[in-house]
Design a protein around this nucleic acid. Structure first.
Lengths: 135, 135
DNA sequence: CTTAAAACCTAGTATTCCGATAGGGTAAAG
DNA sequence: CTTTACCCTATCGGAATACTAGGTTTTAAG
């Protein structure tokens, strides 16, 4: 299951991407338009800023904006930032690899074999989709 | 993330599939061989039996066995039984569809658009893999 | 017929995670 | 120097996960 955090994050990003380039978008604007709790959204956008996807400007007239053109923002990065690993099992994760403690031989493991395929297919989809593709 | 329930379930099924056709396999055998808690595994195999993937025989010399040849057991069925919906969002689920209450227009939703693709790719992988492919 | 072995079933529990909320702190326009 | 809007930490209830406990029923074997 996709967490609401990720879901809201993607919605917020596409909302920002739909504006004219360089426009400042405020939390309140997104929150109202997309039906997302203001405070919750705040923490999500903060995460996206820290990961280098969004920039922010404080003070009156401030807000959030994309740091890169939307066609350069890959969904893999967005998902990894908000949701964490894309793989469904740590032992097939590229960025968050962890050995299973119950499994002596990874190459002989049926779950491993299956989940590698799922991961590869999912990765392909997410890599081929940028923010621009979703707008 | 794949739950341990599903992970253990797949491991147990492949263990059974590796035996000669029609062999009774006991919980304890699988539990020891695959490092899975006996009691937890018990509840998992029960679920698989109730869903019609496994058969069981009680009493001495009893155990679990596959109801169909392993190449007819699709991973979609196994995952749906143990993990639930394959889709990452209810609004793109084929078997467990549910409308998002925050989203007025599904066709305009970026999350929807993306997750449809992920679902289709995952489904393809899981449909093309049977138990026999994992053994 | 008895007993042991095995699945079956119900219930409970400890822990973890999620979604959200609270409440202020800090910086920059105007 | 006040308002606006982002920044940060902490907390909390509810749901889901991953087991655990203990008893019941069925079957085969002695």
């Amino acid at each position: 299951m996709l967490s609401k955090k990720t879901k809201y994050g993607i919605k917020a990003l596409t909302f920002i991407a739909r504006q004219e380039k360089g426009t400042m978008v405020q939390i309140a604007t997104i929150s109202e338009s997309e039906n997302i709790s203001h405070k919750f959204l705040e923490s999500i956008l903060l995460t996206l800023r820290k990961s280098g996807i969004l920039g922010a400007k404080k003070g009156k007239g401030g807000g959030y904006y994309l740091l890169k053109p939307s066609h350069e923002i890959k969904m893999t990065d967005v998902i990894r930032t908000l949701e964490g690993p894309i793989a469904m099992v740590p032992c097939v994760s590229l960025n968050y690899y962890e050995k299973c403690d119950d499994c002596p031989d990874e190459d002989a493991c049926s779950v491993h074999k299956l989940m590698i395929q799922v991961r590869d297919n999912t990765l392909q989809v997410l890599r081929n989709n940028t923010l621009a593709d979703l707008v």
